[in-house]
Amino acid sequence: MAPHHAHNPSKRRGADLSAYATLSVISIFCAIPFFWVLLASIDGNASLFLQWPRELTIDNYVRIFMQEDGTRWVLNSLFVVGTATLIVMVLAGLGGYALSRTRAWWKRPFLYTILLIRVLPTTALIVPLYKVLLTANNWLGGVLRAIFGNGPAREILKYVGFIDGYLGLILVLATMQLPLALWIMKTFFDTVPRDYEEAALMDGATMLQRIRRVLIPLALPGLGAAGLFAFISAWGDFLLPLILLSSPDLQTLPLGLFRAFLRVNTIDYGFLAALAFVYLLPAVIAFGFARRFLVQTFSGGVKG
């Protein structure tokens, strides 16, 4: 820690200058890759290298939505990640409330388990998870085929299938965000005094009424934080869509970007950069909103 007000003003100015210099170097390191994506995306002759665009164009962006499947990728991503976030908010809101209010013996073991689940790497879980989903998917496919016949069953599986279907990806993405969200909501409800609920109880409100009229309005800031973190993390995830999706219809943005990049002989950096920027933007906006919760959330888990 550096002194806030050294006694010698000239010494302090020197220290401030070196602070500016160091922070500038770190900031340039952090910012440079963004310049390339931004500049290449509006450059008619974009290349792999950072350069000032000679002719500005929005052609790359137009192409994403007009010629390529960009619209579908964006809508798929928004649908999958949006639904997963919604599920996380509802489940973590309810579960966090229960964890905060219960006095049962399983409270402490449950909270420990949640923390331990958070450290399990998804990459290590992916193989058994894939097997589990595959088995569930085959079983479900069998049932659907028996009822609806082959053709319609395939259409339905696109939505409710566990492998190469929306439902599987949504549920798994939501589950991976649940531990942190439950933790955020539990600590959040710990700070909400029970008086409010007791007042509602006195008025004869049922559990559902209490949740709707008292707890949801009180819980909104916590739900906002939990939802934002779930969205950012699910939006940025690459492994799960990579393994769980294969049909072009279901492609999400990370897969669209990754596969567009693999078309080696026709690499078009302007197009890729524009696509990367489209994919990046929602995450940065969400992060902007989440910023004020960052310290609480991280330090909440770190207070000894």
């Binding site: 952090c30 939006w235 940025g236 995830d237 990370p254 994919y279 990046l280 995450a283 940065v284 992060f287």
Partner: peptide
């Protein structure tokens, strides 16, 4: 800022 960037 880099913290918000999706992996791909």
């Amino acid at each position: 800022l880099p913290n918000a960037v999706p992996e791909v």
